[in-house]
Design a protein around this nucleic acid. Structure first.
Lengths: 112, 112
DNA sequence: GCTTGACACCTAGCTTTTCTAGGTGTAGAT
DNA sequence: ATCTACACCTAGAAAAGCTAGGTGTCAAGC
């Protein structure tokens, strides 16, 4: 049971999921679990505050609605959020490439 | 530049570098910078405490020596460290695959 | 002689992120 | 009635990494 090492990359994941269409928090958690094949099964206490943080940062906006007696807060990616997502995708690509270089002992860019 | 998102993956990087042969702290920092092509240019305040932590955890052992008037603490991977490295390599593989699945909208393992 | 920069180590405390551990409430099934 | 899934929330703990200092050696340049 392990999945608590997403440190620093949570924002990227959340923005990516919401970028495919507005979603409410609970749905974001489900989608993340589905797409990662259970690797990312995040507690609500992780996701809700993170969504609040992203909204505060201007990357997401939210609207309340009521569906079958349950209130939902649905998040939508803003344009600022879209550009942040682009940057963070690039950061992830750079970061993961660098880790792989370290693990594979090759300090050169993979030209392949 | 920027590359401060190695959160949670620092141990893996340090163990990997030391696994190629005993190294002292300063050399670890240099090696990491070289292999990552400057992506990981870590401050001493990050690396030294992390090495201490890894030694305390039994993953590294250290010996003091003196080279040209300068004292060095040289770290060696222990057998426990070697197995931890193996596990963390696997964790990294799983983690990065999961992130890529989320980013690429495919919840299935990349068979290609 | 003095200063600067690379080498080589260290720690205290700040900040941020993530998780734990609770809480509220609705709807539907047993 | 109770349980599970749905759907939201927050306070506080824990941990990681960074900032910003500190000590000391050696070699080069002024």
């Amino acid at each position: 049971m392990r999945g608590q090492a997403l440190k620093g990359h949570l924002d990227l994941l959340l923005l990516a999921v919401v970028s495919d269409g507005p979603k409410h928090g609970y749905a974001v958690i489900e989608e993340l679990r589905l797409r990662s094949v259970d690797t990312f099964d995040l507690p609500e206490g992780t996701v809700y505050p993170a969504l609040h943080r992203l909204e505060k940062a201007g990357y997401l906006s939210s609207d309340w609605s009521e569906v079958q007696g349950r209130r939902r807060r649905t998040y939508t990616l803003t344009s600022r959020g879209a550009s942040a997502l682009g940057e963070q995708r690039q950061s992830w690509a750079d970061f993961s490439a660098a880790v792989n270089h370290v693990l594979n002992r090759s300090p050169w860019p993979t030209t392949s």
